[in-house]
Amino acid sequence: MSETIVVLTEQPLLDADAANLTALHPDRDVAYHVVLPGRTGRSLLVELIDRLSLFELPDRAGDERAATDRARPEQALQASLDVLERAGATATGEVAAEKPVDALVAAVRAHDAHEAVVITVPHAVEDTFHTDWATRAQDKLGLPVLHLYSGSSFIGDS
């Protein structure tokens, strides 16, 4: 019987994200349950500060991040499940109607998961003040929550 790792992501998973996830436990039978929020609930001002801190211009033509931000949640979820399947992983998922951290906590409990992963792009304000999803989820769950930055192998400080 496989164990479940619950993954909260704010945008469609990338191939690099799937590679990072599957590398966590290559010797164990693991299934993934992806939670993608219908709305992130992020402030536009905080989003602008985040993008400027990464030297991104929010209205830049062809901005891949802006395009994925506009993807419908159902499409983003399916894209994430497809990426995990291509990486050889078993995955299910849901679009959460509630707040992202509350949805992650509910999914961890529903799947009796002992591990949770949050995958986001860097968020200067939340990461600096430890109000990011991973830190908040860790406080609510009482178990370690790994925070990975999308498209890289960098680990957040939660």
Rank of each mutant, 00 (worst) to 15 (best):
L148H: 05
D50I: 07
L14W: 10
E56Q: 15
D69Y: 12
V30A: 00
A61M: 11
D69F: 11
V145I: 08
T40R: 13
A61W: 08
A67D: 10
I119E: 03
A134C: 05
Q11Y: 15
T128C: 04
D132L: 09
I119N: 03
L148A: 07
A66W: 03
R70C: 09
G41R: 05
T40C: 12
G93H: 05
L146K: 00
V7N: 00
D29T: 06
A23E: 07
R136L: 12
L104S: 05
D139A: 14
A31M: 06
D82E: 13
D27Q: 12
I155W: 05
V125T: 06
S80H: 07
L45D: 13
A137Q: 06
L8W: 05
R72T: 09
D27C: 08
A76H: 01
V46Y: 15
V46H: 15
G62I: 04
V108G: 02
S53A: 14
L77F: 00
I119D: 05
P12L: 06
G38H: 10
A137Y: 08
D29M: 02
S80T: 04
A87C: 04
K140M: 15
A23R: 05
K99N: 15
D157W: 11
R51G: 11
H123F: 13
I49K: 04
I155C: 03
L13R: 00
R70Q: 14
P26E: 01
A79W: 08
T4Y: 00
